[in-house]
Simulated scan of single mutants.
Amino acid sequence: MTIFNHNHTSNVDIDNRQKFVSYYPLALIIFGTALNLLNFSILWRPAFRDTHKRPTIHYMRTIAIFDILMLYGWNFDHFLYGAYGFTLSGYSVPFCKIFSFWNYFTCQVSAWLRVFICLDRYLSLSYLHKTWFSQSKNVITIIMCIITIATIISIHILLFACHYNIDGSINCQARLYEIYPIWDYMHLALYNGVSFIMLLVFVEIVQFKNLKFNIVLCQ
C-alpha cells in the first residue's frame, strides 16, 4: 500500500511538472503579448510622438513588435508539444521552414535593435550636436538595414532547410548541407555573444559618462 501511494504521488508530481512545462510557455505568450502591446500603445501616446526630438522611439516601437513576434516561435511549439504532442514546425515542410526562420530572425533583429539604442545613447552623450545615427529618418533606415541583414543571414533556412524523409517524416536539416548544430552556434554568437558584448560595452560607457557628468555637477 505504501509503495502504491509512493508511486501514485510520484506520478502526480511528474504530471504536475509536465503541465507546468507545457503551460508556462503559453502563459509567457499571453502575458508577454499583453505587456508588449501595452508598451507599444504607450509609445504612441502624444508625449512620445515627436520622433524628431526622440528618434530612439522608433527603435523602442520596433522592439515591442519583434518581442511579440518572438513569443510565437519556440514558445508556441513547446506549448503545443507538451499539451497536444505535436509542433507546428513539424506539421509540414512549409511550416518547418517558416517557423525555423522565424525563431532565429526575430531574436537577432530584437537583439541588434537594442545594441543600436545603446549606440544612440552613447553618441548623444558624446557629441553636443545630433549625429547621423540620431536623425529620425536615419534611424528608420538603420532599422530597415537591421531587418534586411537579419533576413539575408537566415534566408538559407527558408530556401534549403526542411524536407520529407522517405518514411514521410519531416527532417529539419537541408539536403545539401548540415544546418544544425552549426547554425545554432552561429545564432548564439550573433544573438547572444557579439550583440551582448557590444551592448554591455555601450552601457558601461554611458554609465561612466553619466557618473563623470554628475561628479562635475557636484563640484
Rank of each mutant, 00 (worst) to 15 (best):
Phe31Ala: 05
Phe31Gly: 04
Phe31Met: 02
Thr33Asp: 14
Ala34Val: 14
Ala34His: 06
Asn36Asp: 10
Leu37Pro: 05
Leu38Ser: 11
Leu38Trp: 06
Phe40Lys: 08
Ile42Trp: 08
Ile42Cys: 14
Leu43Val: 12
Trp44Thr: 08
Arg45Leu: 11
Pro46Val: 14
Pro46Asn: 07
Pro46Tyr: 14
Pro46Glu: 07
Ala47Asp: 07
Arg49Phe: 03
Arg49Cys: 05
Asp50Glu: 13
Asp50Asn: 15
Asp50Ser: 08
Thr51Tyr: 15
Thr51Cys: 08
Thr51Gly: 04
Lys53Tyr: 11
Thr56Ala: 07
His58Gly: 01
Thr62Trp: 09
Thr62Arg: 08
Ile63Asp: 03
Ile63Trp: 02
Asp67Leu: 01
Asp67Pro: 01
Ile68Gly: 10
Ile68Ala: 10
Leu69Trp: 11
Met70Arg: 11
Met70Ser: 13
Met70Tyr: 15
Leu71Trp: 15
Leu71Ile: 10
Trp74Gly: 00
Phe76Val: 00
Phe76Ser: 00
His78Asp: 05
His78Pro: 00
Leu80Gln: 03
Leu80Met: 13
Leu80Trp: 05
Tyr81Arg: 02
Tyr81Ser: 04
Gly82Cys: 08
Tyr84Met: 05
Tyr84Gln: 07
Phe86Ala: 09
Thr87Pro: 01
Leu88Phe: 03
Ser89Trp: 08
Gly90Gln: 08
Gly90His: 05
Tyr91Cys: 06
Tyr91Asp: 12
Ser92Gln: 14
Ser92Lys: 13
Ser92Asp: 15
Pro94Ser: 12
Phe95Gly: 13
Phe95Asp: 10
Cys96Arg: 06
Ile98Tyr: 03
Ile98Gln: 08
Phe99Thr: 00
Ser100Lys: 03
Trp102Ile: 00
Asn103Trp: 00
Tyr104Gly: 06
Phe105Val: 06
Thr106Glu: 01
Gln108Lys: 07
Gln108Tyr: 11
Val109Lys: 09
Val109His: 05
Ser110Trp: 08
Ala111Trp: 13
Trp112Asn: 03
Trp112Lys: 03
Arg114Ser: 14
Arg114Lys: 09
Val115Pro: 01
Val115Asp: 01
Ile117His: 04
Ile117Leu: 04
Cys118Arg: 02
Cys118Ala: 07
Leu119Val: 01
Asp120Glu: 12
Tyr122Val: 00
Leu123Gly: 06
Ser124Val: 03
Leu125Asn: 08
Leu125Ser: 06
Ser126Thr: 12
Tyr127His: 14
Tyr127Asn: 11
Leu128Arg: 15
Leu128Trp: 03
Leu128His: 12
Lys130Met: 04
Lys130His: 10
Phe133Arg: 03
Phe133Ile: 04
Ser134Val: 03
Ser134Ile: 02
Ser134His: 09
Gln135Phe: 13
Ser136Pro: 07
Lys137Thr: 11
Asn138Arg: 14
Asn138Met: 09
Val139Asp: 11
Val139Ile: 07
Val139Trp: 15
Thr141Ser: 14
Thr141Gln: 15
